[in-house]
């Protein structure tokens, strides 16, 4: 058959314009498969119809496009962004996975740090208590130390008269010293060596004035020198063990130490 005559018969145009009947179409399809020239002619005819149509386009009103896109909105969304969303969801999955892992790690650390926190807090409280105790002890020591310093100052004062009181017969192990301020006449005692008084008993200092014992005060628990009463005049000092709070007159059988002034 004459391919060129067939091509120019108008059947191709009839086909692309949709006018050809079934018989014509099937004949054309068979021939196009067999003759590349016919296939090429169809392509050319299609291209020229398209070019002509585009050149003769009439712009439709804008409302039509709006209406179409409104109608298709729901159909675009699930699939309109076929590339980016897969990437985004891929990234999102990684981010989500990372976030979950971080959350678990973080929760674990929370428990760990909380227990550490509680432990540290109790340790801190113990330290504060210990510090307060130490501070109190330190203050006590300072007071004691100051008392001792003051006592030492007094003992080395040239105006201070020192009266040594050795233990009397039967009480040789005992020893005490009276410091007597020659200006103010204040009396202090240093109980160097006196047995721990039994319960309900207290040592009492006596000044012997004109042969008679005068109460010079009871010895309480003091650091260094214990301040006693003011004694203007005395020839001798002695210490007896009396009932707590002292007695009006000394129990001579309970005398421990005694010493003459001068």
């Amino acid at each position: 058959m004459d391919v060129n005559t067939y091509i120019q018969s108008g059947v191709i145009e009839s086909y692309i314009m949709g006018i050809a009947d079934e018989q014509e179409v099937s004949e054309l399809m068979q021939l196009a498969a067999r003759y590349p020239e016919i296939k090429a002619a169809i392509d050319v005819a299609e291209a020229s119809l398209e070019a002509f149509s585009l050149a003769n386009a009439t712009p439709p009103p804008a409302v039509v496009k709006t209406a179409i896109f409104e109608q298709l909105t729901s159909e675009f969304r699930p699939a309109t962004e076929p590339k980016e969303p897969t990437i985004i969801s891929f990234n999102f999955r990684w981010i989500a996975a990372a976030a979950v892992i971080l959350l678990i790690v973080s929760s674990g650390l929370n428990v760990y740090f909380y227990s550490r926190f509680k432990e540290t807090t109790s340790q801190y409280e113990a330290l504060v208590l210990e510090k307060n105790t130490l501070q109190a002890n330190n203050q006590m020591m300072q007071t004691k130390s100051l008392d001792l310093y003051n006592s030492m100052q007094m003992m080395t004062d040239p105006a201070m008269l020192k009266v040594a009181m050795p233990g009397i017969a039967g009480k040789e192990n005992s020893f005490a010293t009276v410091f007597w301020d020659t200006k103010s006449r204040d009396v202090y005692i240093l109980p160097n060596k006196l047995p721990q008084p039994t319960k309900g008993k207290q040592y009492q200092l006596w000044a012997i004035v004109d042969g008679k014992p005068v109460d010079a005060g009871v010895i309480s628990d003091c650091a260094g020198l214990c301040k006693m009463k003011n004694i203007p005049k005395a020839s001798m000092f002695a210490v007896t063990l009396e009932k707590e709070g002292g007695s009006p007159s000394p129990t001579l059988s309970e005398m421990y130490v005694a010493g003459k002034v001068g």
């Binding site: 585009l54 386009a57 439709p60």
Partner: peptide, 8 residues
């Protein structure tokens, strides 16, 4: 690109 051609 094509609405105009089809509209004609």
């Amino acid at each position: 690109n094509y609405a105009g051609a089809l509209y004609s």
